[in-house]
């Protein structure tokens, strides 16, 4: 089990958060805070790259959902990249596929903002 890591970079107007490890009740607040900080700084086009994430619980879904709501109300969006099959199953079970757009990698997700 990898430990939680979060790094941030900017691709033009898009903020990409690269997450690794487990996103659970302990670590999800750190993702939530990073998303809230970006939104507070006026950056509402968000990509969360989950390629290094091997585990998510409902706490991760709640943090992402808050980011989706916040970004859309600011005229942007939150899009996902690099979702591994195990994580994708949790998203599917929770009904997230109808809500959040997914892309193969962060570059494709960032480019989708046009």
């Amino acid at each position: 089990m990898r430990s939680f890591e979060l790094t941030e970079r900017e691709l033009g107007p898009v903020t990409v958060m690269v997450v690794a490890g487990s996103v659970d009740a302990i670590t999800a607040p750190r993702l939530g805070e990073a998303l809230a900080s970006a939104l507070a700084a006026g950056r509402s086009r968000l990509v969360v790259d989950l390629v290094g994430v091997d585990y998510v619980s409902s706490a991760a879904l709640r943090a992402l959902l808050a980011g989706v709501k916040g970004s859309r109300s600011a005229g942007g969006d939150l899009r996902l990249a690099g979702v591994t099959p195990a994580v994708a199953k949790v998203f599917a079970l929770a009904g997230f596929d109808a809500i959040v757009q997914r892309f193969d990698d962060a570059e494709a997700a960032a480019a989708s903002f046009g």
Binding site: S57, S58, A59, L61, V68, K69, R72, L93, A94, G95
Partner: peptide
């Protein structure tokens, strides 16, 4: 509310939902 628009969704009970269905 899993099929309802995002703006109307609540998140309560999601963990239990994932448990029961997992």
């Amino acid at each position: 509310d899993l099929g309802t628009p995002l703006e109307e969704r609540a998140v309560g009970g999601l963990g239990v939902f994932l448990t029961v269905h997992g």
